[in-house]
Simulated assay, not measured.
Amino acid sequence: MGKQNKKRQLWHKTPHDGVPGIYAATQRFLYQFQGPAQLGDRNESAHVAPPDPNCPACRQPLQDHHITPASPGKSSHMQCPPPKPQLG
């Protein structure tokens, strides 16, 4: 029986293999510890926003709300409309 000479691989394959330069060398080294980016399942379809979203606070359509955009030093602000009267 012949002995198989299989070279033992110490490092994982990276997207930076074969790229010259100190930046690529650093990325190859860090990839061994960090691994690939955690982006989720690549076979999963992209998120599709609903055509008429509702406000999470008052459950009314967002198109009925008044949104004040952000300005320097201030955050944006959304004002809910008054509640609609209940029928019945």
Rank of each mutant, 00 (worst) to 15 (best):
T68Y: 08
K3S: 10
H77K: 15
K13Q: 12
F29H: 09
W11F: 13
I67N: 07
I67H: 11
K74G: 02
Y31F: 14
Q34P: 00
K7V: 12
P72G: 03
Q9D: 14
P72T: 03
L39T: 11
S75F: 00
G40M: 04
P20N: 06
C55T: 04
T26I: 11
E44W: 03
G2Y: 03
L10C: 02
H65Q: 07
P69H: 02
P50D: 06
P69G: 00
Q86V: 14
P50G: 06
V19A: 10
G40P: 06
Y23I: 14
P69R: 02
M1D: 11
A25Y: 00
M1V: 08
Y23Q: 11
S45Y: 04
G73Q: 00
R8M: 14
V19W: 06
P69N: 01
P20I: 04
H16S: 12
P53T: 09
D64V: 01
P85S: 04
R8C: 06
Q60L: 15
P82I: 08
L62P: 03
Q32N: 11
F29P: 00
S76W: 11
V48I: 14
K84I: 04
R8D: 13
V48C: 06
T14S: 15
L39Y: 09
A46Q: 05
P72A: 09
S71T: 15
M1N: 07
S75C: 05
L62D: 06
S45H: 07
G2N: 01
C55E: 07
H12N: 10
K84N: 02
P50I: 02
C80I: 07
Q34Y: 03
P82L: 09
F33N: 04
P81L: 10
Q38S: 09
A46E: 06
K6L: 12
D64K: 13
N54W: 09
R59C: 10
Q4C: 05
L30Q: 11
R28I: 04
P83N: 10
G73W: 00
Q38K: 10
T26M: 13
S71P: 01
P53Y: 08
Q79F: 02
Q27S: 07
C58H: 04
R8W: 11
Q79R: 12
R59D: 08
N54H: 14
G21K: 08
P36S: 07
N5F: 06
A25W: 01
V48E: 08
V48S: 09
L87W: 12
D41H: 10
T26Y: 10
P15S: 03
P85H: 03
P61D: 12
I22P: 00
H65A: 12
Q79M: 03
G2W: 01
H66K: 15
M1Y: 05
A57Y: 13
P15Q: 02
S76K: 01
H47W: 12
L87A: 15
D41Y: 04
H65E: 01
D52S: 07
M1G: 10
D64S: 12
L62V: 13
N5H: 08
R59W: 06
P61K: 15
H12S: 10
P51E: 13
A49P: 05
H65T: 01
S75L: 04
Q86L: 10
Q32R: 05
S76Q: 03
R59F: 13
G40Q: 10
R28F: 02
P69Q: 00
S76G: 06
D52P: 00
L62E: 13
T26K: 12
C80V: 07
F29G: 05
A24I: 07
S45V: 09
A70G: 15
I22Q: 09
K13W: 05
